[in-house]
Nucleic acid binder design. Structure first.
Lengths: 254, 254
DNA sequence: CGTTGAATTGATACTGGTCAATTCTAGTGG
DNA sequence: CCACTAGAATTGACCAGTATCAATTCAACG
């Protein structure tokens, strides 16, 4: 939509964006998409590839996508997962900046960028919606940077289970999650290896923090312990943070 | 600006944004700011803190800022640096999502969010500009996630020197950079420790890739080696990437 | 000069990675 | 219905890359 009016449709670099509709309803943008036919993608099918011309934006109506970037030697980073209701591929440049692949069987509604431009142009409410969503996305990206740069494997997995738990826990029992992703997906999302993810899961199980009836099913038995481990006071911080160490680093000599 | 019209000015979570004016001129938004008086900040002074009500957006006219997030125990992640011409603190929510501190003596122009709303409202060109900038920001964030999740210390530092080199190398000789940041800043940006940053610098120096007349001054002697090490084919990829390993991971069984 | 904080360097520890073997599960076909 | 197979996940043994802790050098500044 930045692309709406006077945008260089053929510039050098190139983004692509996932927009989570965070809680509050976003009827207008979604309404626009809901007039489009749905397209099906099977597990592991590619929706678009990093570097492709960004011709379309998608609304994920069903299933899960992974959004990833690759290093030339094959190392992979998953920058995020898209869940039903999320917008994917919103690009304000000419090319997608990441690859989107179906994790599960998936249904998407496609809107060509040019159509979207027309729809959004002039509708301030839609623009606001898009702005807010991108900002949330950016905020999530910064959380992830903190996780990747400064958290241990235990902390990363704890954060992951809590965060993804919130998003995924729609139709399951309160503390049960069904992870649609493979261990490799989780590893690439958390900057770890499958072995470390697996081991850490096992440790959590042995500590009684979670139960693992099978690899895809996680039952959170001690959410307190998880959120405490995840850092960031995501829930009630049982004991106050170590003020000494905080101020030692947070309070720069002015 | 998403905040322009019907935005919940008092919601729960909260972002804040840095916008780099990527290359091409962005006269309109900047013009708006240039009517504002400049405010000075001294080295290490705090501009705003994560969680503060996001009342203002800033245009950095001189100096360097670091944008950081903290874990309750004091671990710090620098999500980005802001350079002259960058917009900082653009928030589409009610609160800033990160802390902004001056790295050097700094001059900022402040625009209150409400003013900005008025200015941007109705000006499609400005909106497009903002959209594009946020998208670039998001793209950079994803690059950083790849770096933090999947690159080695050597690769991280190589990427850093090249990236920051491009942005900083304005008025210095072609391959000389003057880093305004401390080793701690660099470490917190790259998800490393000061010691590792320091050691890796020394290694690069001993390998003849860079010269270090003094800690702040880096002379890049072998940019090829750096860009090769940084991965991502940032410059001409001397030898073609190892196709075998790429396809092994990139090509999912469909 | 002496002091102070930053950067460098060194010695050692430990987290998480690598390599490899084993288990588990879901399909598949006899 | 039951081996067989293939891919995923788990587990184990070992190793490497960084972190940690500590000492030293360096430079700016009073």
């Amino acid at each position: 939509m930045a692309t709406i009016a006077p945008v260089p449709i053929a510039t050098a670099a190139a983004p692509g964006t996932t927009l989570s509709n965070s809680g509050t309803a976003t009827p207008s943008l979604q309404g626009t998409f809901e007039r489009q036919p749905t397209e099906q993608f099977t597990s592991n099918e590619v929706v678009f590839v990093e570097g492709d011309p960004a011709t379309s934006v998608f609304l994920l109506s069903d299933g899960v996508l992974r959004l990833c970037r690759l290093l030339p030697d094959g190392r992979r980073s998953i920058t995020g997962f898209a869940l039903p209701g999320d917008f994917v591929g919103l690009s304000f440049r000419s090319r997608y900046v990441y690859t989107a692949e179906a994790v599960t069987r998936t249904r998407l509604r496609r809107l060509y960028t040019r159509q979207l431009q027309v729809v959004i142009h002039g509708d301030v409410a839609l623009q606001d919606q898009a702005f807010t969503m991108i900002c949330d996305e950016l905020s999530a990206a910064q959380d992830q940077m903190l996780l990747l740069g400064r958290k241990t494997a235990r902390e990363r997995l704890a954060s992951f289970l809590l965060t993804i738990g919130c998003k995924l826990r729609k139709r399951t029992r309160p503390n049960e999650l069904i992870l649609p992703f493979s261990r490799q997906d989780i590893a690439d999302y958390l900057g770890l290896t499958i072995e470390t993810v697996s081991r850490t899961m096992t440790i959590f199980r042995k500590e009684g923090i979670i139960d693992l009836p099978d690899p895809q099913r996680v039952i959170i038995q001690d959410p307190q312990a998880l959120s405490h481990m995840a850092g960031e006071g995501e829930q009630e911080p049982a004991d106050p943070p170590d003020i000494m160490r905080v101020s030692q680093r947070a309070a720069w000599p002015s």
